[in-house]
Nucleic acid binder design. Structure first.
Lengths: 205, 205
DNA sequence: GTCTATACCTGGATAGAC
DNA sequence: GTCTATCCAGGTATAGAC
């Protein structure tokens, strides 16, 4: 890793716990192992470090569907086709995979925490946070469940209502366990039960 | 309002947007209309203002069940009796009442925002936030739905799973609309559909 | 209880030697 | 690209007059 990359890494770690204002340039420099003044050879300001983190997160998101093994957002027929073969166990395993990716992927989980605490302070951070964790998941799953109803895998129900019922427990558990990822087994057990209930309610028989 | 109370009021407003570290004693004093030095005649430190806010919130919580017209937490039979008479419309109206109280009660909504952004920084704040918004709601509703299943109002299902499905959309919508309470009509429409679906799924016929 | 004045510190950022 | 030295702004808090 270059020094510039290490600065971004350590800054994200510190921002995700202490916030942007709560983290000094000296804190970051100490974590990297250089003097605070030296940091300005890599970034012209503290703000520029944050901007770089946001840009990196945007790139990270573009590669995320690959990491999760998801088809592209706009190819709902392909997505539904993937889910079509799912039995209950596969659906449970799949939801856990997504949940744990958000909770444990080091970049995503730190960005979640930073986005949470910076949401009223930093519009550029909040915009990415809002889109990823509040908008896109619902949009994607709404389209997916609509397609799965059309294909008679799920019963007919308002796909957006289904999406909110599928996603909001995940969001709730992420919020609750983001502060204590060591207790994620507890979160997984709850998620497990929620997904099985979801399957029971909406699976066409 | 005494000057001391006005300091607490303005401090909570500022903390809920700019955070504890992001708010200076001068910011608070300006909002109150006094000099920063004068503020120290009322509180011995900035931290003591925050402590007072937390204490006030704790007292506020004790009076909240009254404000919401809820029976005491430990009287589940009385609670279930209240709900037992509910038809779909009454349940919808009731869920909106709770949701809007959290979103619009000036003290609670500002404490929600402050708790969100201070959760990794201030343990005393987070403890109250976690208990109110992450624990107690689920605990209460789990006991309530268990009682309602026993009384054959709702079908038999895991009451905790029901509670998470009832509460997590509320939590999700609070998170999403806390930053933009002017769009709460949109939130209410979504909540409306979720609650009707909940009723459809679990109401015994 | 409010004010002015001030002490003391930390934070962001720059200049210039090496 | 790292360092030391330094500047300046702003933050918390105190002292003491009124």
């Amino acid at each position: 890793m270059t020094t510039g990359e290490r600065i971004v890494e350590e800054a994200l770690t510190l921002f995700s716990v202490n916030g942007f204002k709560g983290t000094s340039v000296k804190n970051i420099a100490d974590a990297v192992g250089i003097r605070d003044a030296s940091l300005y050879k890599h970034f012209k300001s503290k703000q520029e470090i944050l901007d770089t983190i946001v840009d990196t997160m945007k790139q990270h998101i573009e590669r995320m569907s690959d990491a999760l093994g998801l088809p592209a957002d706009n190819d709902m027929k392909a997505s539904a086709a993937v889910y079509a073969t799912f039995d209950e166990e596969t659906l449970v395993a799949f939801s856990k995979k997504i949940f744990l990716f958000y909770l444990r992927d080091s970049f995503v989980s730190r960005f979640w925490r930073m986005g949470t605490i910076e949401q009223f302070q930093n519009p550029e951070v909040y915009e990415v946070f809002r889109k990823l964790f509040l908008e896109d998941s619902i949009t994607y799953q709404t389209a997916l469940f609509a397609q799965m109803s059309r294909e008679h895998i799920f019963v007919d129900a308002d796909p957006q209502v289904m999406a909110v019922y599928f996603y909001s427990p995940i969001f709730f558990l992420l919020s609750k366990y983001a502060a204590s990822p060591e207790k994620d087994e507890e979160a997984l057990q709850i998620l497990d039960k929620q997904v099985r209930e979801f399957y029971r309610i909406y699976k066409r028989r």
